[in-house]
């Protein structure tokens, strides 16, 4: 931008400039708008704060009473005293694993094709619009899709109501998000990097593999981790796919057996505990919510760390 308007300059400068131009020493209107904005910010922060404080306060007796027990206990929605979240944590991480293995390569490949191989074509534009629409489809609809396809149609392959089917459903859910964030990351790579590589005789694939993808990696990874966090927080689709809500004991099943066996996940654990009439389950519900919040915040923190650690400015 060669020409700067007052509005595009930082706060202090623009205020001084406006004051100079209008001859007023104090702009009441601007101050009022600023105050209103601060208020809205405070309101939204307050909601978050109240939520977290309330969850911690409600679950506090449980955390002081049997924290280890709760974290390593099984899903049990009949007895609040032996209710735990271990199966939920395990299920959520296994779901994330399936989502990552499926959605990450697929999504990145889609985005690379759309941005690097056919960026100007009508097909790419059309596909991009559709991918954006897909990202806005409500998660419950993906749940129905998962039930119809991954549980029923190819149940012989996925084993029916299993982690595998649930993971595939969530992968379908976050795939458009991975495509979009990867596309953004690829588009943020400056043109001269590609032109320079083409200039010394690199092929299209070499340009993508050696220059564009490494440069876009921080953005791609951030987007992927954020979409994993989204998948970790979804309850509706995996409830439809058949996550366990009552009792789940996996005994000493192997990893593969668990992957193709009954499963549950943190949001489903919270759902199961929240609908119990027993008062003692309120603590368990709040405590399970704290665990899920911690899991999701950890993932988000990882995304921020990845971005800050590897981000490049041009």
């Amino acid at each position: 931008m060669a020409l700067s308007s007052p509005a595009s300059i930082g706060g202090g400068t623009s205020r001084a400039m406006t004051a100079g131009l209008t001859g007023k020493s104090f702009d009441v209107k601007s101050k009022m708008v600023e105050a209103a904005l601060v208020l809205t910010l405070a309101a939204s922060m307050l909601i978050l704060l109240v939520l977290i404080v309330d969850l911690l306060a409600t679950s506090w007796p449980l955390w002081t009473d049997r924290p280890g027990d709760f974290l390593t206990g099984s899903l049990n929605s009949a007895n609040a005293q032996s209710a735990g979240v271990w199966q939920g944590i395990k299920g959520t991480l296994m779901l994330c694993l399936v989502v990552m293995v499926v959605a990450f390569p697929l999504g990145v490949a889609c985005a690379v094709y759309l941005e690097e191989y056919s960026s100007g074509s009508r097909f790419a534009k059309w596909t991009r619009i559709n991918v954006r629409n897909l990202a806005g489809v409500p998660s419950i609809v993906y749940g129905l899709l998962g039930l119809a396809i991954f549980v029923n149609a190819i149940g012989g392959f996925t084993g029916g109501r299993t982690v595998f089917a649930g993971g595939l459903t969530l992968a379908a859910l976050v795939l458009p998000i991975v495509v979009i964030t990867t596309s953004e990351a690829l588009r943020a790579v400056p043109r001269p990097i590609r032109e320079g590589a083409f200039g010394v005789g690199a092929t299209q694939w070499e340009v993508v593999k050696d220059h564009v993808l490494p440069a876009a990696a921080p953005g791609i990874l951030t987007g992927t981790v954020l979409s994993l966090a989204r998948a970790a927080g979804e309850a509706a689709p995996i409830l439809l796919v058949g996550a366990a809500t009552g009792l789940l004991r996996t005994g000493n099943q192997s990893f593969v057996e668990q992957l193709t066996g009954p499963f549950t996940a943190m949001p489903v654990v919270i759902f199961s505990y929240a609908r119990q009439p027993d008062d003692a389950f309120r603590e368990a519900t709040a405590a399970a919510s704290v665990v899920l919040l911690a899991l999701v915040l950890l993932m988000n923190a990882l995304a921020i760390w990845l971005r800050n650690r590897y981000d490049r400015k041009w």
Binding site: N76, A78, N79, A244, G246, L247, R249
Partner: peptide, 25 residues
């Protein structure tokens, strides 16, 4: 009936660590 099956299933799984059990309602 789910709470009965959960309570019994949980106790059975405690006594038999090799058994995997799922109860739904």
């Amino acid at each position: 009936v789910e709470p009965i099956s959960i309570a019994v299933g949980n106790a059975f799984a405690d006594a038999n660590p090799d058994v995997a059990i799922t109860v739904q309602g």
